[in-house]
Write a protein that binds this DNA or RNA. Structure first.
Lengths: 223, 223
DNA sequence: CTAATAGTGTCTCTGAGACACTATCTA
DNA sequence: TAGATAGTGTCTCAGAGACACTATTAG
């Protein structure tokens, strides 16, 4: 690759905000930093962008390093460029948001990271860099996407009950919805369909299982 | 600044999509490239990010180089990172969108650019790089912002008539609205208020002038 | 008084939201 | 048959959209 004609001394990296729902709480994957700065503090999993990969590729690669995931949703959020966001050197970082269903997720252990752990968004530890700001931005975007698209399918298993679907909305948007109105609204949008199967585990009346009709993200006014 | 520990050979730049309305058409400022690649072709005005400025600062600086503007709106859109988007070397570019009212705008001549010119979005010339894609993304974002926020104030003069306001919506969203329903809707949102002044230029019945109530961008369901 | 744009009210229909009971299953 | 969750229908009210005439001004 030709040498560029301007000297820049800026590091380009990617930060991942990985969302899932565990124990009826919206959670984010954080890693404990084994090195300075912010040694032993928690931070978002991140990666340096190599010369021959796009930002998306870096983000996806880093996601795979830490998790075993199929059917993952990845979306670019925003590029953060404050001069002093990294105390060591000038770093510009593009934040990505990922959505993972609990079922499709296993956290890989890796010697590069002392520890990876999911934290509820309501109980985040102290974070290094500007990662608090990044997470706030990501939560805002996630809420918006949930309200206006069929993105919920990426937090749910492939087949799910109406109650599970409503839980996703109630947990992420942090509000209660009336059961009848919620079902009426979802049904009117034709974004999910019957699988004609039922739950098996339930001690009581088993619920019907549904799946999303369209696996592409489409704009729908859900709530 | 400490030397970063990873060798990256990536150029960081900024591309500006500058919107305004001229002659009842939505237009974008393009510059004619005096150098290769894409010599003499039109492209978005762009700038290289210096080590000690944020992306926002670069975008703003470049905007000021080309235009004399007060009261400008600037918003980060997306960061484009395809490996071969610049044929010379690896370039990652963050796109910004700017909104300018015709009244607040004068295009500066600059010897760095052979020529700057506004083009209607419906009649854009052949563009270098991935600038067509960037513009399409910017138009989508602009439409969304117009529908759901009070951003229209940045394309309008400070005081404007109801007809001018409706024109902005009709031109950008490319659809007609009923005069009565449009006014009813806008009035119900309390985002504009009377100035108790009237147009003077009009040959016929002069219209009342309004101004926006709130100069911050707020989420409002306009259309 | 003519020509041209500014400005206004009503009706219908759709959809959001409030609200409570019956159905189905297991043990 | 008890216990627990699944599942459903109606009414009201707000707001979107269709639609046509009067008001004001300059010349």
């Amino acid at each position: 690759m030709t040498k560029k004609w301007v000297e820049q001394n800026i590091l380009i990296s990617v930060d991942n905000v990985i969302f899932t729902i565990i124990n009826d709480k919206l959670q984010i994957l954080l890693v404990s930093r084994p090195i300075e700065p912010f040694k032993w503090q928690w931070s978002l999993p991140w990666g340096v962008v190599w010369d021959k990969e796009t930002l998306e590729e870096t983000a996806y690669k880093k996601l795979e390093e830490k998790t075993s995931v199929k059917n993952i949703y990845l979306e670019q959020l925003y590029t953060f460029s404050n001069i002093r966001r990294d105390p060591r050197w000038r770093t510009i970082s593009t934040a990505y948001m990922a959505l993972v269903s609990r079922e499709n997720l296993t956290i890989k252990s890796s010697k590069a990271w002392r520890e990876s752990k999911f934290f509820p968004v309501t109980a985040l530890p102290k974070l290094g860099f500007d990662h608090k700001e990044i997470i706030e931005y990501a939560i805002k975007r996630l809420k918006w996407k949930l309200e206006y698209t069929n993105i919920a399918q990426y937090i749910l298993p492939e087949k799910f009950t109406f109650t599970q679907l409503q839980n996703v909305y109630e947990i992420v948007l942090n509000q209660k919805f009336d059961v009848r109105n919620f079902r009426k609204k979802i049904n009117s949008l034709w974004i999910i369909e019957e699988t004609w199967e039922k739950e098996v585990w339930n001690q009581y009346r088993p619920a019907r299982l549904f799946k999303f009709t369209n696996n592409n993200i489409e704009i729908v006014d859900v709530i």
